[in-house]
């Protein structure tokens, strides 16, 4: 059975980087979102298991998405992939319920080991 995955990033390149870093053996059904509002639309209308979330985005940023997920009690495992690596920001997203924080630019090794650590795949 394939897992449903949502990649939310305003950058096309960054979305591609995440896609390419996903492990080959992992059967996924991927949806893409260009900013927080689009991501919330997807989350509300279909069940998503894993979301990869950028922070610095137009319309609604990643912190806003995490807050909405918490408030609406949406069930999804969120992995933040961001360039904003300040410790204060990392702590903030973890407090808001993100599974892990990964720094940009993302590579396959880190992504895979993080996914495994969290019992996905």
């Amino acid at each position: 059975m394939s897992s449903s995955v949502l990649i939310c990033d305003d950058s096309n390149l960054a979305r591609k980087q995440v896609l390419r870093s996903l492990p080959e053996q992992w059967e996924v059904d991927v949806q893409l979102a260009k900013h927080g509002l689009e991501a919330l639309d997807v989350l509300r209308s279909s069940a998503i298991e894993v979301m990869f979330l950028d922070l610095t985005m137009p319309e609604l940023d990643g912190v806003g998405v995490l807050e909405a997920i918490k408030e609406e009690a949406i069930s999804v495992k969120v992995f933040v992939i961001s360039a904003d690596i300040q410790p204060e920001m990392q702590n903030k997203v973890l407090e808001l319920g993100a599974q892990a924080f990964l720094r940009k630019p993302i590579n396959s090794e880190t992504l895979v080991s993080t996914l495994q650590e969290h019992g996905i795949m």
Binding site: N12, A83, Q86
Partner: peptide, 24 residues
């Protein structure tokens, strides 16, 4: 073009992030 702009923006994003971290 759109791809070039997107790529440059992402490079800047990452640079901004790391620079801000050092600054912070």
């Amino acid at each position: 073009n759109e791809d070039q702009q997107d790529c440059l923006q992402e490079l800047i994003n990452v640079a901004m992030g790391q620079a801000s971290d050092q600054l912070a």
